Amino acid sequence: DYEVGESVTVMDGPFATLPATISEVNAEQQKLKVLVSIFGRETPVELTFGQVSKI
């Protein structure tokens, strides 16, 4: 299970290999909103559970 505030690594898509912090969890739809730090700015990205891995 994923929790808000948890650190994960993006495994898929254009942000693969980047660390991210979970900002929202939708367990019903198996989706997460995460904040990816790009060029010093936090960018919100919506991903599925399968696109991230716990650190």
Rank of each mutant, 00 (worst) to 15 (best):
N26G: 04
F15I: 02
S37T: 14
T21N: 05
S53G: 08
L47H: 01
T9V: 15
N26P: 01
S37D: 08
E3S: 13
M11L: 13
V45F: 07
V52N: 00
F39L: 11
V8N: 01
Q30C: 10
S37Q: 12
G13K: 02
E3K: 14
V8L: 04
E6H: 07
F15V: 02
V36T: 03
Q30D: 05
G13H: 04
K33D: 03
N26V: 07
S7F: 13
L18D: 02
K33F: 08
A16L: 05
A20W: 02
A20G: 14
E3R: 14
V25K: 03
G50L: 12
Q29N: 09
V52H: 00
T48I: 06
V10Q: 01
A16N: 07
T43R: 07
R41V: 15
T17Y: 13
R41E: 09
F49E: 02
Y2P: 03
F49G: 01
K31S: 10
Q51Y: 03
T48F: 12
L32S: 00
L18I: 06
E24D: 08
E46N: 07
V36P: 02
P44L: 15
E3A: 13
G40T: 04
G40W: 04
Y2E: 00
T48L: 11
E46D: 08
V10L: 05
Y2V: 03
E24M: 09
F15P: 00
L32C: 05
S23G: 06
K54T: 05
R41N: 10
I38F: 11
E28F: 11
K33W: 14
G5D: 04
T43V: 15
F15D: 01
E28K: 11
V10R: 00
K33H: 08
G50M: 12
E6Q: 12
V25E: 01
Q29E: 12
V36Y: 02
E3C: 11
Q51I: 03
I22W: 01
S37M: 14
Q30L: 09
I55S: 10
V36A: 03
S37C: 15
F15G: 02
G13P: 03
L32Q: 00
S7P: 08
P14C: 09
I55P: 09
V8I: 09
K31M: 12
F15A: 03
I22K: 00
L32I: 08
K54Y: 06
F39D: 12
P19N: 13
T43L: 13
K31H: 06
L32N: 00
S23P: 01
P14F: 07
A20D: 00
V34D: 00
E24V: 08
D1S: 14
L18A: 06
P14A: 07
V25I: 12
D1F: 14
G5Q: 03
I38S: 07
E42V: 12
S7L: 15
F49P: 03
F39S: 10
L47E: 00
T9I: 15
D12C: 14
G5V: 01
F39W: 10
K54S: 06
E6F: 06
S37W: 14
P19H: 14
V45A: 07
E42Q: 11
D12R: 09
S23E: 10
M11C: 10
V45Y: 07
V8Y: 02
A20T: 02
E3G: 07
G40C: 08
E3Y: 15
E28N: 09
Q51C: 05
P19G: 09
